[in-house]
């Protein structure tokens, strides 16, 4: 299989700030790739370099076989891009927005209707409404339709679900899967760790670096330390207690549970259990746990800081 995006040793600095530090990335043709990380990790800079909107300082980069620095004109025809903020004309109607982006790319809504139908049909009943009057979820669907209307080879979405409620977020990912099934390569970024598992392949980004890459399963399999989940009604109290424990690497709250990561295999659930009991009499249960993406992310940052 060809690779849609190949990046080797990419570097980008803003003054003294290293926004992207020696990045390597490979997105396969037809792949569904996620960049996962908090604000300031470098996701937007990376996407802008891929879309030819930013010039890299150094490194090798090919997108759809083209160099975004030299062949940006050809490349831009092949890309669908949805920038971080919703980029629509609020004073134009739904249909006018879509029509405009279609004709900018020299096509029509009709021509690629099949492709955008799963997304667009949901907002089509409101096609005469101004984009500014749409709800957040609908705006997002319109923006996606506009990015798709010219049938791009690669669809690049910069934090499409940030600030969007959990329900709309789920719907949005369903639509992405649908688009992907039509053979369009997707590169998407998100700050929500739980969305990472919805992609085929992900890179965890932090501080301008990729800290781990692979399928979600591969990444979680990289988690070597013993990890346990503590279930209790007294999360806040137990959190404080467990923090004092020896041989603890980290303890983090996940909803109404605590994830406890230990330093070595010498310690186990029993030690944790005994330690808690020696300090208090709160009810709790402790079970072995298999780490999720967020556990991996936290673990990487903590290891790096140490």
């Amino acid at each position: 299989m060809d690779s849609s995006i190949v990046i080797n040793n990419l570097i980008k600095s803003y003054g003294s700030l290293r926004a992207l530090d020696n990045l390597n990335l490979r997105v396969e043709n037809g792949g569904f790739y996620g960049l996962v990380g908090p604000d300031g990790a470098g996701k937007t800079s990376l996407m802008r370099i891929i879309t030819s909107l930013l010039l890299p300082d150094d490194g090798y980069i090919r997108v759809a076989g083209l160099d975004p620095v030299k062949d940006y004109k050809k490349l831009r025809l092949k890309l669908g891009y949805m920038p971080g903020r919703f980029s629509l004309y609020q004073d134009l109607t739904v249909e006018e927005n879509l029509k405009f982006f279609a004709s900018v790319f020299g096509t029509t809504i009709k021509e690629n209707y099949n492709l955008i139908a799963p997304v667009y049909s949901q907002i089509e009943p409101f096609k005469n409404r101004r984009a500014g009057k749409l709800s957040g979820g609908m705006k997002q669907k319109l923006a996606l339709s506009c990015a798709l209307v010219h049938k791009p080879e690669i669809l690049i979405l910069d934090e499409p679900t940030t600030g969007v409620d959990a329900v709309s977020r789920r719907e949005f990912w369903d639509m992405l899967k649908d688009i992907r099934s039509k053979g369009i390569t997707i590169l998407v970024s998100t700050p929500y760790m739980e969305e990472a598992v919805l992609c085929d392949t992900i890179s965890l980004m932090f501080d301008g670096k990729i800290i781990d890459s692979g399928t979600p399963n591969e990444i979680t399999s990289h988690f070597k330390e013993p990890i346990f989940v503590v279930k209790t009604d007294f999360v806040r109290s137990l959190l404080k207690i467990i923090r004092e424990m020896p041989c603890l690497k980290s303890v983090n709250s996940f909803g109404q549970t605590l994830h406890v990561v230990l330093n070595s295999d010498d310690c186990g659930a029993k030690d944790v259990s005994e330690f808690i009991k020696s300090k208090c009499s709160f009810d709790f249960q402790i079970e072995p746990y298999s780490a999720g993406i967020e556990d991996c992310f936290i673990n990487h940052i903590i290891s790096r800081k140490k």
Binding site: L53, R76, P83, S87
Partner: peptide, 13 residues
């Protein structure tokens, strides 16, 4: 400001 310039630049215009 609204970010549409990014899309226009990435378009074949």
């Amino acid at each position: 400001e609204i970010g549409t310039m990014e899309i226009l630049l990435v378009s074949p215009l």
